Structures are given as C-alpha cells and as structure tokens.
Computed example of a mutant assay.
Amino acid sequence: MQISGNTIFIPGSTSGIGLALAIELQARGNTVIVGGRRAELLERIAAEHPGIDTVQIDTTYPAGIEAAAKEVLAKHPDLNVLVTMAGIMRVEDWHQPESFLASAESVITSNLLGPIRLIAAFIRHLRAQPDATIITVSSGLAFTPLKITPSYNAAKAAIHMLSESIRLQLADTSVKIVELVPPSVRTALLPGQEESEFAMPLDEFVAEVVALLEAQPDAKEIQVERVKFLRYGEARGDYDQVVATLNTSDPHGK
C-alpha cells in the first residue's frame, strides 16, 4: 500500500486507534472517510477535521453495512482502501454461562462477523480498482491469550487466519491484504487502559504504524516493535513465559 493518494474508508474510527490513524492518513495526502454509530461524534469529527468525510454505520447489522457501503461508494467512487477497524473488547468469566454468553456473542459479532460483512460489501468494488488494499486489524492477543478476554482473543486469532487465507485467494486480483497487529494501546477499549503504563501511547503507536506502511509498501503484517513479544513467543520457544508475563503484568493487554 502506498502511503498517499488513496481514498480510505475506516469504519469504527470515531475514537482511539481508528480516529488517530484517520487523522494521520489524511495528513499524508489521502482522502479519508470515518465511519461510526454515533451521529454526534461524526459531526464533531467533521467540524474539527475539515476534509475528513463521515458516514454513519453500525457494523453489527448487515443491512447497515450495505447501506453505508452504497453511500460511501456513491460519494467516493475511487475508494481503494478499506480498514476494518470496528471492534469491542469485553472482560468475561467463563465459570458460568450466564455470565459470559451474551458478551461472547457480541464480541464475535463485532470483531469477526463485522469485518467479514464489510469485506463482502466492498470486495467487488475493490477488485475493480487498479490498486486496492484491505487492512484487517487483529491483535497481539491473536497469538498470546489474555485470560480475562477469551472471546476477543479468539476473534482476533480468527482475523489473523482469515487474513492469511483471503490473501491467498485474492492473489490473482489487484487487492492486497495487510494485517495490522496492535499491542496494548492507550485507548478506551477496556476501562483503565487509557492510563495503563503497560499500554503503548496512542500517538507513538500511530506514528510507528504509518512509518512502517511507508517503509514497507508490500508488507503483509504491520507489527510495531512492542507487539513482537506477543507475536513471536511460540516461534522463539518462550510461549509459556510470554503467557505468564502477559497475565501477571497488567490486565489491559490488547
């Protein structure tokens, strides 16, 4: 993916990593469309960041995704980058089903079905572009589990394998698949995570991500240095130690 000259849709980007990335990518010479559920946040973003377009979308509802896709493509027929940013993280206790089932289902719907439905809504258009990119968003927790967020870990592991698989299928098209693999970042994904010393400062994370995208236009995964501890534990042979460290150091690992 080239770092400038794109038209980029980022659903789930009214705060946190998504919004910070949208702002930085616009500054790099891209047309950026931010998507989110809450109209008041979209209005504020449009007012505070002239040039960023907005569209209301709830990625947990298939009909909402289809409607938003039609709106985005009508206004931006040159769209060539989709970032499947939307997702939630929930703490779960699996000792009793009544304490985790509803949460687990919502996490899977948002973090796995949402990206699948988004890709389905845009893939025909993206395949028709001379150069297109889908950026999926997994996590260091796709590779090392945080015990308090089982469904989030599972959904992100699925996103990793989904990215690997559709990259193979779409190798005969103009669409590249890039997997963004965040570590814990100081956002509101979990209560207290914005103040966590364990988490990476948001501005540092986004700056490193954009620098990697610029330096590695053909990268399959975008990994900041902090995530490699989680990403490669099994390959290094210290997986058990990484799991133990993650689950005793801080409750806000992403």
Rank of each mutant, 00 (worst) to 15 (best):
V34E: 06
E195A: 15
A46L: 05
I177R: 00
A86T: 08
T60V: 15
S139H: 12
K220C: 07
I8F: 00
V185P: 09
D78E: 15
K254S: 10
N247W: 13
R37V: 12
V175M: 07
G16L: 12
D53L: 03
A128H: 15
A86W: 11
A102P: 12
E164A: 07
K75I: 05
D93T: 15
S151E: 06
N247I: 12
R226E: 01
E92D: 10
G29I: 07
E24K: 12
R231V: 11
A142E: 07
K228C: 02
P62Y: 14
R231T: 08
A104T: 14
S151T: 12
V32H: 03
E225S: 00
P62T: 15
I57N: 01
I119S: 09
N247L: 08
E66R: 15
P183I: 02
A171P: 08
S106V: 13
A215P: 13
L230Y: 13
L168P: 06
M1E: 08
T84Y: 05
L113I: 10
S138W: 00
A104P: 09
R90Q: 14
L246H: 09
L190Q: 14
G140Y: 08
A128N: 13
E105D: 05
T109F: 12
V55C: 02
T248G: 06
S106P: 14
G64F: 08
G18N: 10
V175K: 03
T54G: 03
G64D: 13
T14S: 03
I10T: 10
V83S: 01
I65G: 00
A46Y: 13
K147I: 15
I23N: 03
A68E: 00
I57T: 02
A219Q: 03
T245R: 14
